[in-house]
Structures are given as structure tokens and as C-alpha cells.
Computed example of a mutant assay.
Amino acid sequence: MPTQKPTAILIVHGAFFLPSSWQPLVNDFTNSQYTVRCPRLPSCGDERPPKATRNDDVAAVRTAAKQLIEAGHNILVLAHSYGGMVTCDAITEDLYASTKSNGIVSLVLLSAWLIQPGNKFEDVIEKYGHQSEVDLGSNEDGTFFAKNAPASFYNDIDPLEAQELAKANVTHNLFAASGAITYAPWKDLSTMYVFCTRDLAIMLPLQRSMVQDAVDAGGKGGFVTEEIDSGHCPFLSKPEEVIRVVNKALGGFE
């Protein structure tokens, strides 16, 4: 395993969100002298009818990673929710740091989908049930939205503020979540999974089940867990806690 410490953070946001939701946290880490990138995933807030697939999201993440590597950075990838699926497809061995080159050295999965290679989102739902209170609405054109975003995404935030935050949520091409996961960078890289204990979008028992599956599948990179007492979006409700766990990972999980 490479021992380089990260100098950059690559954020992979979730479905129904845009990079702007992460801007306060981006500012905090930038002020701490880290280079931070949060590329927009094309399937989020896509055209109607939607054109972007998960392949387009993967391409956006890989482009951002390569740009950081070319700039001489070692990278921690921070993935949230659907961003975990994108990350597992995007972060392949050619992007890893080595003794001869910069690259990706570690992962932090923040209440993220953690699906085994060869499996699909639907397989996890079939195995563990629909453990989510997100009420999805369809625009009948391939785009979907969260009808109850204030209650399901921001249940740990003042209701009036939650209503305002929900205005920034966007549509998602839900079919981008379809198709088998192709890769498992968490088997190779030091990885932290952060449980969000009050999450109503990916509920805690489901988070734990996905992590247990990953632990059972093994991995030489090392797999540690942390908890934040929050809903689905601690980067908005408890940013200081996200900073705490990410700083731990930036320091080498020590």
C-alpha cells in the first residue's frame, strides 16, 4: 500500500444533489490548504428527457481525478450516497498512487451505496428490503425526484431550513443507478465507511448490512468505520463532524 498522505480531496456527490450543496465544506478544506474538487455528475439535474448515464458520471469523476493526479496530488475520494456507486466504477487501479506516481490513496464512503462487483442496486434491495423513507416521484420522462426531501434528506435540520435546502435538490435519471457494479476499490485502498445513524434515505441497518458484506468479501486495503449522529446530509447538518472523520482519514486513519 502506498503511504503518501492526500493533498487533495475529490468529492463524489449523491443523486438529487449538485456540487453547490458541498460548497461550505469545500471552503473549509480549501482553507486548510487542501485542493478540493467536486465535479457535477451529469445524471443529476440532467436534461428532460435525460441523456446522461452512470457512464457519464464515471467519466466526470475520472477526468477530475486525472487532473488532480497530473497536478501532482495524492487524493482522498469522499463519496456520498449514489456517489458510492459511481466511485466503485470510476476508481480503478490505473488511478491508484504507487511508489512511482501520485494518485488515489484512500476512500471515505459517507452513508454511500456499497455494492459488490457484479451486483446491482436492485440486488441489494431484494436482499435487504427497501430501507428508505424517500418518496420518489416520476416526471414520466425518465427523471425522478424526491417528493419528501425535507423529511427524508434533512430530518435532522430545522423544518424551515430543510424546506429551503430542498429547493436546491434536482432530478435524477434513476436508470443511472441500474446496471451491475464493475469494480471494488475498497478492496485495495484504505477505506472508511461513515454511518449516518439517523439517515432516512439509506437507513442505518442497510448501511451496516452493506458494510458487513464488504468486510466478508475481504480486502487488503483496510476497512474502518465511524459514526455521525445525523440524517442523510451531515455535510449540511453537521459539517464539523464530517470534517472530523475526513481529517482522520487524511491523517492516515490514525
Results as ranks from 00 to 15, higher is better:
Leu174Arg: 06
Trp22Ile: 00
Leu78Ser: 05
Gln131Asn: 15
Glu227Val: 04
Leu110Ile: 13
Gly45Ile: 11
Gly231Glu: 03
Met210Thr: 02
Ala180Cys: 02
Ala151Asp: 01
Gly231Pro: 02
Ala79Tyr: 03
Glu126Ala: 15
Ser43Gly: 11
Pro159Lys: 12
Leu250Asp: 03
Asn148Phe: 01
Ser132Glu: 08
Ile202His: 00
Phe153Lys: 07
Tyr96Gln: 05
Ala151Ile: 01
Gly219Asn: 10
Ala112His: 13
Cys233Asp: 09
Ser32Gly: 04
Val245Tyr: 03
Asp56Asn: 12
Gly84Ile: 01
Asp199His: 00
Leu165Asp: 00
Gly219His: 06
Met192Phe: 09
Tyr193Glu: 04
Ala184Leu: 03
Leu165Gln: 14
Pro42Ser: 07
Thr225Lys: 09
Thr63Asn: 06
Ser101Arg: 15
Glu126Gly: 11
Leu204His: 04
Leu200Asn: 01
Gly179Ile: 05
Val26Ile: 09
Gly179Leu: 01
Ser43Thr: 14
Gly179Met: 06
His13Met: 13
Leu200Gln: 06
Tyr193Val: 01
Thr191Pro: 08
Leu68Gln: 07
Thr63Cys: 11
Thr182Ile: 00
Phe253Trp: 13
Gly83Val: 10
Val194Ile: 13
Gly252Arg: 03
Asp56His: 11
Val12Gly: 08
Thr3Asn: 07
Tyr82Cys: 02
Ser138Ile: 14
Leu165Thr: 10
Asp188Leu: 10
Ser101Phe: 08
Leu95Ser: 08
Gly222Arg: 00
Lys238Asp: 10
Ala217Asn: 15
Tyr82Ile: 13
Ala8Thr: 10
Ile181Leu: 10
Leu136Cys: 07
Arg48Glu: 03
Thr225Gln: 12
Ile75Thr: 00
Asp89Gly: 11
Thr143Cys: 14
Thr7Asp: 08
Cys196Ile: 02
Ala146Gly: 09
Gly142Ile: 05
Gly83Tyr: 07
Arg37Ser: 12
Asn31Lys: 10
Lys147His: 11
Ile125Cys: 14
Gly137Phe: 12
Met1His: 14
Ser190Ala: 11
Phe121Gln: 15
Gly142Arg: 06
Pro39Arg: 03
